[in-house]
């Protein structure tokens, strides 16, 4: 655990990790990296490393949870025991159940659940490395995994936190700023600007709250652009791979549809100069009752295609 810094913001107005007060950390996004999930996303947000997987819509187990008119959304936020400096006891705890609940609610209204009655959409979040703001990073990743899974949504959800250190509002807290700061306020926002999650830890005056909310919304808009770019790049990259993989003779044959090489698309890369100070997690502690939720084990499901031996040929046409 690092000591509390004397000053969070230097004379040049820069923070300990060299960011400006309204600057978000670097984000790196990879979409569709889990083969067995219906949709997946790996996201790095500063020193946070998050894996999100989406399964569904699929049958609800246990059966009694199913809703006759809409799909249920289940969100499981889990921190790996190695994600923080001091080993975290594995399994759900008070904090992760709370984060799961508020994050699920951030998504529920944006998904067209009414199109899939009696089914479940499962979102699994694994925090591989934590450095403050994991719930916001997880929401950003989950949003992309949902889009990758082909789940109909009103828009993407983007999420970002604002906080206060040295009586100054700052965007997207890192670990030290979170641990020793005066306030932390994560928000999540839909594409059209609706706020779907808002929590606060610490103290802000009314003016600070208003200004902070605006800063966080601006941060969400920046993140939205990165999410959007990541999805489009993901599509373009798969197209490019196909053109490169195509056998030589077939490329010749389709000369009319010449395969144009695109510029390699650069991912935003995590810079090395951000100090690694992954301390224990002490994210928001919100005092409210959290309903007990039964957690389900992740099970990969796969269809077996029966192979049947051929003995006769039939003809048929179905289109």
């Amino acid at each position: 655990m690092s000591e509390k810094p004397e000053k969070f913001i230097d004379e040049n107005g820069l923070r300990l990790d060299g960011r400006k007060i309204d600057q978000i950390r670097d984000i790196k996004i990879e979409i569709g990296i889990l083969n067995r999930a219906d949709g997946s996303c790996y996201l790095e947000f500063g020193n946070n490393k998050i894996m999100a997987a989406v399964y569904g819509p699929r049958e609800v187990h246990p059966r009694h949870q199913q809703k006759a008119t809409k799909a249920i959304v289940r969100y499981k936020y889990n921190m790996a025991s190695f994600s923080v400096e001091d080993r975290k006891r594995p399994g759900p705890d008070r904090r992760s159940i709370e984060v799961s609940k508020v994050s699920r609610e951030a998504f529920e209204k944006e998904i067209f659940t009414e199109l899939y009655p009696k089914s479940a959409i499962d979102i699994f979040i694994e925090i591989l490395q934590a450095d403050a703001g994991t719930r916001t990073a997880a929401i950003n990743a989950a949003s992309l995994a949902l889009a990758d899974a082909g789940i109909p949504m009103r828009g993407l959800i983007s999420s970002c936190a604002v906080g206060k250190v040295d009586d100054t509002l700052i965007l997207d807290l890192n670990k030290d700023e979170d641990n020793y700061g005066q306030a932390d306020m994560p928000i999540a926002m839909s594409t059209d600007g609706k706020i779907t999650l808002l929590q606060m830890d610490g103290h802000l005056t009314q003016e600070e709250f208003k200004k902070g909310l605006e800063m966080a919304q601006q941060g969400c808009r920046e993140i939205y652009e990165l999410q959007r770019k990541a999805l489009i790049d993901h599509y373009n990259n798969t197209q490019k791979e196909i053109i490169q993989d195509a056998p030589v003779e077939s490329v010749k044959d389709i000369s009319t549809e010449s395969a144009t090489e695109e510029d390699p698309i650069e991912d935003p890369v995590i810079s090395d100069d951000v100090p690694d100070n992954g301390n224990t997690v002490n994210d928001d502690e919100i005092k409210e009752d959290i309903p007990d939720e039964k957690e389900e084990v992740i099970l990969d499901e796969d269809e077996d295609n029966p192979a049947i031996v051929s003995d006769e040929t039939e003809d048929d046409t179905l289109e």
Binding site: N305, P306, A307, I308, V309, S310, D311
Partner: peptide, 9 residues
């Protein structure tokens, strides 16, 4: 009903 051939997904 399918008695021969293969099913592919």
């Amino acid at each position: 009903s399918i008695t021969n051939g293969r099913i592919f997904e």
